[in-house]
């Protein structure tokens, strides 16, 4: 299914400044980031100054202002995961992919993110790949997971 257009996201929300965060959430969800062009349109359609749209988009962690990699690996660094070695997991991801958190790997395939809590604290350390949960992670398990994503990706490309 193609992502909804900005026009359809804005439907029934036009001229309602308080809908700003909801609109940004939908844009983030479907496009992966908030482009400057989208911010200009949102500003016009909701009746919110562009500066305010940028202020909100840059304040909240949920919004990325730059495109992210094709696959997003999210590492939970909440307290429960921290005491069970979330740092190791983060080190593994950073070391293996050679990319800092929030940046895109050179091949455009990966972005690593760390979040404050994914809310599955009993099963830490927790990692999600594109929204799929993985519990009791270890550096070794993450290494395999990243390899399997590379493999799936290569297969997809050869099928194309």
């Amino acid at each position: 299914m193609p992502p909804p257009t900005l026009d359809s996201i804005l439907e029934e929300r036009r001229s309602q400044p308080h809908q700003l965060i909801e609109v940004l959430q939908d844009v983030q969800e479907h496009y992966g980031y908030i482009a400057e062009e989208s911010m200009r349109t949102i500003s016009n359609e909701l009746g919110v100054p562009l500066m305010e749209v940028y202020k909100v988009a840059s304040f909240y962690k949920a919004f990325a202002l730059k495109p992210r990699g094709k696959n997003v690996i999210t590492i939970c660094t909440g307290t429960a995961c921290h005491v069970r070695g979330a740092k190791l997991i983060l080190n593994q991801a950073v070391g293996q992919l050679g990319v800092k958190p929030s940046e895109v790997s050179d091949d455009g395939l990966f972005t690593i993110e760390h979040v404050n809590c994914l809310g599955a604290c009993a099963l830490g350390p927790v990692v999600t790949d594109n929204g799929n949960y993985h519990n009791h992670m270890s550096p070794g398990k993450l290494r395999k997971l990243i390899k399997s994503i590379y493999k799936t990706d290569a297969e997809e490309i050869s099928h194309d």
Binding site: Q19, F59, Y60
Partner: peptide
């Protein structure tokens, strides 16, 4: 239902209300 923007300070009541109004929390 309103979705939060992933900001810890929005758990504070006045910040949450600012966020509900579509503003910075």
């Amino acid at each position: 239902i309103a979705r939060g923007g992933g900001s810890f300070v929005c758990g504070e009541s006045t910040a949450l209300m600012a966020s509900l109004e579509g503003k910075v929390g």
